[in-house]
Write a protein that binds this DNA or RNA. Sequence first.
DNA 1: AACCCAGGCAACCGCTTCATC
DNA 2: TGATGAAGCGGTTGCCTGGGT
Length: 301
Amino acid sequence: MGRSPCCEKEHTNKGAWTKEEDERLINYIKLHGEGCWRSLPKAAGLLRCGKSCRLRWINYLRPDLKRGNFTEQEDDLIINLHTLLGNKWSLIAAKLPGRTDNEIKNYWNTHIKRKLYSRGVDPQTHRPLNNSATSTTTVPPPNTSVLQSQITTSNKNMIIDDISIINSTNNNDNNGNFLLSGNDNTKINVTKLVSEDSNSNSSSAVSSEETYHHQQLNLDLSIGLPSSHTQMNTDKLKLEQLQGNEQQETKVITTSHGLCLCYSLGFQTNQVCCCSKTIGNSITNTVADNNMYRFSGPMDI
DNA sequence: AACCCAGGCAACCGCTTCATC
DNA sequence: TGATGAAGCGGTTGCCTGGGT
C-alpha cells in the first residue's frame, strides 16, 4: 500500500521559483505564519507542492537568513560539529544562526571537503587520509588537555544535556579514556587527550600517525558534570544515530554534576543551553543550575 | 565567438520521524 | 498499539554560470 502523494503532480509547477511566486509565499506567511504546508499552496494561490513551498521558505525566503560567504569561524564550527555529529545538517545548522541545513550541506560538499582534503584529512572520518581505517587508540599530544569526540555507541537520540561524566581518576577506563553515560545508561566512550605532565600509560603503543590524527581532531570539547534532572528548555544538541560498537565494554560510574559540551563548540554564554556556571579559566557566569557546569577552557583533569 | 567543462547551488525525491487518532 | 498523515531530513539531480580553450 503506497502513500498518497503530497500533491497533485499534474497541477504543480516545478523548477525555479518566479518572483511572483516568491511574493505570494512571503505575503501568505506574513499574514498567516508558517505551518500546514500541505494546504498552504492552495490557500496562497500557488501551483506548488507544499514541500516545495516549505523548502523555498526555509532555504531562501526566510527573513532571518544570513547571506554571503561563510566566515572562518563558521568554517571551523561546521568542521567541529561535523566531527561530532556527522551529516546531521539540520543539527549543525541549528547552531549557526541564519544558515540553513541545505546551505551548510552544499557548502560542505563544495568547499570544506576540498579544504580538508588539502589538509590531508578525510572529511567523513576526520582522520588523516592515509590512516582512515585505524583504531581509535589515543595518544596524548603535548600540553593538551581536552576531550575528543571519539564516540563509540550506536544509541539514537542521545542528548548531550543528559550525558553524565565519568571522568574522575577512578572513572576512566584502563586506556585513559573517559566514559560518558546517558540518562538511560547509554554509554559513550570519549577519548581523553592527556596533558604532557599527566601520567598516562595509554600512549606507549600508539603510532605517530595516530598522534597526527588526534592533533588534527582536537575539538576542545568541554564536558560538564551531570545535571540533575532539571528540564532543559533550551536547544538540545542531539547526538543521533551515533555509530560505533554496541558491544563496547564500559565501566560506568555516575557523578552528581552536569556537563555542558556546548561552550567549547563555540557557543556564547547562554546561547545554547541554560547551564551557565563556569568553571575553568576565563569566564564568569551566573549560576543557572547548581549541578551544571560549563567549561570555558581546556579541562585539566 | 562558440563550445566544453567544472563548480555552485536551488530544488526535488524518497525515506524517516513524529503526532494524532 | 497500530495505522495514517504531515513534516522533516539528507542524498541526489539538474540547471546556471563562469572560466578555459
